[in-house]
């Protein structure tokens, strides 16, 4: 073990950390990686290719991706206004952005359901227009946009703060309009951060449970998300099947995150 610093306490602190990480993270995740194979290779394959499973995975990843796509422009607007503009109540508005993270997911779930139910404050307005949100895949999207927003905003804000104004001033002196400057100078500079925010919102959305299940309706093949299917399999004591589905979810989301991370690095700027 090479230790560069002469400060004391490295050994005990590392021991505590390693024991804790092993017990709380490594051991449990090992069980997730090992348990599915009790079914055998073919068994795992069948277990994760059931139409109901495929529909749930498609819904979870699809809705999360769509919600993240919605959150990118939305989050950019919010971050821009928070960082670049000064207005009364800005600090308050800025701390509100964390509401979806601070609010327990179950509370967000029932509140959104109450809002968008046919008799709810918003649902009642949408009903005459023929738009149904609660108990449909649209409801899932709404919930995921809600929980994903802070991830995009909080990833963008520090980058936006550090963005040198000189580049924008240079563009202006070179005759670019404000819109051209934004399109050709600002947005490209923010691209890696936008991608990072997208990835963070996506990762959160894929695994989201509490805020979704109340508003989703949970109809198999239609509005049943993958995490719910894991819960259902556990209730049926199908541990291996639940673990298989969990493992697939983890692997797919890690692959997507890895891909986005590589893409971000290729854009030249590494975020964090």
């Amino acid at each position: 073990m090479t230790r560069r610093s002469a400060l004391p306490g490295f050994g005990p602190a590392l021991t505590i950390t390693l024991v804790w990480v092993s017990l709380i993270v490594l051991l449990p995740l090992t069980s997730l990686a090992v348990r599915p194979w009790e079914l055998g290779l073919m068994g795992v394959w069948h277990s994760i290719t059931e139409p109901r499973v495929l529909a749930a995975l498609r819904l979870s990843f699809g809705a999360a991706a769509l919600a993240a796509v919605v959150n990118v422009p939305f989050g950019l607007l919010v971050a821009w206004v928070m960082v670049r503009y000064r207005f009364p109540g800005r600090r308050l508005a800025d701390s509100l952005i964390d509401m979806p993270l601070a609010l327990p997911t179950a509370v967000a779930g029932i509140a959104l359901t109450a809002l968008f139910a046919p008799k709810g404050w918003i649902g009642a307005w949408l009903l005459p227009l023929g738009i149904k949100v609660a108990y449909t895949p649209v409801g899932i999207m709404v919930a995921l946009v809600f929980v994903g927003l802070p991830f995009v905003v909080r990833t963008l804000e520090p980058v936006l703060m550090d963005l040198p104004l000189e580049a924008e001033e240079a563009a202006a002196t070179l005759g670019a309009t404000r819109a051209q400057t934004l399109r050709k100078v600002v947005i490209p500079a923010l691209a890696p951060a936008l991608l990072a925010g997208f990835a963070a919102a996506l990762a959160r959305g894929v695994g989201e449970y509490g805020s979704v299940i109340f508003i989703a309706g949970n109809m198999p093949m239609l509005s049943e998300i993958a995490p719910l299917l894991i819960v259902i399999r556990l209730e049926q004591l199908d541990y291996a099947g639940a673990a298989a589905l969990g493992l697939v979810m983890l692997l797919v989301s890690f692959s997507i995150l890895l891909l986005l991370n590589l893409l971000q690095k290729r854009m030249g700027v590494k975020i964090r």
């Binding site: 051991l27 997730l32 995490p227 556990l234 969990g246 989301s253």
Partner: peptide, 23 residues
């Protein structure tokens, strides 16, 4: 080690419960 410490953030809460049931 940093990656392992941050790992729980990128795991679905349902999976964070599931693993204990598996054990």
């Amino acid at each position: 080690l940093i990656t392992l410490i941050e790992l729980p953030f990128s795991v679905s809460p349902v999976i964070s419960g599931l693993v204990w049931v598996l054990l």
